[in-house]
Amino acid sequence: MIEINDLHKSYKMGSNVLHVLKGINFSVKEGELVAIMGSSGSGKSTLLNILGMLDTMDTGTYMLDGVPIKNLNETKAAQYRNKFLGFIFQSFNLINYKTALENVALPLYYQRMPRKERQDKAMKYLERVGLRDWAYHHPNELSGGQKQRVAIARAMAAEPKVLLADEPTGALDSKTSYEVMDLIQKINQEGNTILVVTHEPDIANMCKRIVHLKDGVIEKDELVNQVMAAEYV
């Protein structure tokens, strides 16, 4: 699903050049649930941004579902993001003046799906994250866990190839975190490919595979025994 070869990325900080990613080789197969771990400054967020086409790489190759991701213009990148990727953010990033349903329907709007179809589909995904009754509420009426579940529904609504989660539990307490991880595990069990960036070991251990990043290189890439979040809920 994801194939990365010899990926380099550096940032210019005034006269200094900060080499963040120093040759990453990494692949993800369909249906995997991968945690990317590392302390802050290890380059894990940069890697996720490049995977999410939110940022560009300096050198290397990146294949996503057999499509080379290279030299994309803004329009093309937007279309690929819409088609291939679903994002889950630490701070949820829901649009405040839209209801939960409208938020979930937004990526479908950018797919030019007709309104009725869009709403039905959005409602279906809201139901899957257990928020059917909250469809017409605005984000400020939802709890943190509910907001993240709306965000997950939104990420899934466009039926992307890969879900990218950037610290999905970073703003949640541990109980809610486990609920969210439980949801992510269930989605994974349905065959979806998911990448989770986290610095929390217990969250990482709920994935099937952990990639440890340190100072811009992969330090360790291991398969782990998945801890089921349902046990804690």
Binding site: G52, E74, T75, A78, Q79, R81, I95, P107, Y110
Partner: peptide, 12 residues
């Protein structure tokens, strides 16, 4: 930014 991440083109 959110809209762009969800697939809004510059034109949109």
């Amino acid at each position: 930014g959110v809209r762009k991440a969800l697939g809004a083109t510059p034109r949109a």
